[in-house]
């Protein structure tokens, strides 16, 4: 395996990790602050992608499409919070899981009802398409590089928001003691709606950005949801910093594993068997990583609560 291939995979790992972070950040905030398990987070990702595909189809503008994915997912998130989620904060996790699972079904079938079963068209805009040359003779798609940069920028904004603003202070306070900040006069239900919409918006943007690379179809959010849960468990529930570190870790493990595992098996197995074994094992790698982290740190890398 050449160095160029290795570096390209590292970049791919980063890009995948950044996408995971955008999805997982909202999930971990909602879980950490409100104590809510939201299985419908993947549906918000899907709503972002569908909004982006529709707006790109109407206007032809990719920038507008991404803004639409943000707005649509935030609006859907706020609506869902007010209509359904608000009634679940005091219930136990099983009720939350059941209700948000129902939301997945409703949102998926609703989307199918509006847009049909066939995948939608959403493509990379021409000014971001094609590969660019990086130092060392690496050819890397410009769009994926843009995602890495945009994702890091969003992560930075989120950090500033949480550490430097009043709302961020309230979010952090809510994370450590929910009852107390309500007693101190913070409008907790407004804060929760805002936070939920923020998480939804991040997932929606991720959906819009990824939609241009993938097929925009009903059910596209579910696979990413499972990975997002893996990320927040590894990172420590409620920790945005943990989510970022864990996302990158999961992204790199997955991407490097998918090329290194088959290569490793080729050392002592015939190629066909090595491919089969390597593929099987590499798809398990992130779960093995999760198990290993949990053995080492049962609350996750940056988690405080048990």
């Amino acid at each position: 395996m050449s160095l160029v291939l290795f570096i390209e995979q590292v970049l791919n790992g980063f890009q995948f990790g950044i996408m995971l972070f955008l999805t997982a950040a909202g999930l971990t905030l909602v879980f950490g602050v409100m104590g809510l398990i939201n299985l419908a987070h993947g549906s918000l990702f899907m709503i972002g992608a569908f909004a982006a595909a529709s707006i790109a189809g109407w206007t032809g503008s990719f920038v507008l499409a991404i803004m639409a994915s943000l707005a649509a997912a935030a609006a859907a998130g706020a609506l869902v919070e007010v209509a359904v989620i608000r009634k679940l904060y005091d219930r136990d996790h099983l009720d939350q899981v059941l209700a948000t699972f129902a939301l997945i079904l409703i949102l998926s079938e609703g989307t199918r009802w509006i847009f049909g079963s066939f995948p939608l068209y959403l493509n990379i805009p021409s000014y971001l398409s094609g590969p660019i040359s990086l130092p060392g003779g690496i050819q890397y798609p410009l769009y994926r590089l843009t995602i890495i940069i945009a994702g890091l920028f969003i992560a930075l904004c989120l950090r500033q928001l949480i550490l430097k603003t009043r709302i961020g202070m309230q979010i952090r306070a809510g994370e450590s003691d929910r009852e107390m900040i309500a007693v101190l006069g913070v409008n907790i239900s407004w804060l929760y709606t805002l936070l939920f919409a923020l998480g939804a918006a991040l997932a929606g943007v991720a959906g819009g950005l990824v939609g241009a690379l993938q097929s925009v179809q009903v059910g596209m959010g579910e696979p990413i949801l499972i990975l997002a849960f893996v990320v927040i468990v590894i990172g420590g529930i409620g920790s945005v910093k943990g989510a970022l570190v864990a996302s990158i870790l999961v992204g790199l493990t997955d991407r490097l594993g998918s090329i290194l595992m088959p290569e490793a098996f080729k050392l002592f197995l015939p190629p066909a068997d090595a491919t089969l074994m390597g593929s099987a094992l590499s798809s398990m790698l992130i779960y093995i990583l999760m198990a290993a982290v949990l053995v080492w740190k049962p609350t996750g890398l940056y988690g405080v609560r048990v």
């Binding site: 390209e8 791919n12 890009q15 995948f16 990824v210 097929s215 696979p223 991407r255 998918s258």
Partner: peptide, 13 residues
């Protein structure tokens, strides 16, 4: 699977 970045890198190499 929906992201083929890793596979494309290997095809290129």
């Amino acid at each position: 699977q929906t992201d083929y970045a890793a596979e494309l890198a290997q095809i290129r190499a």
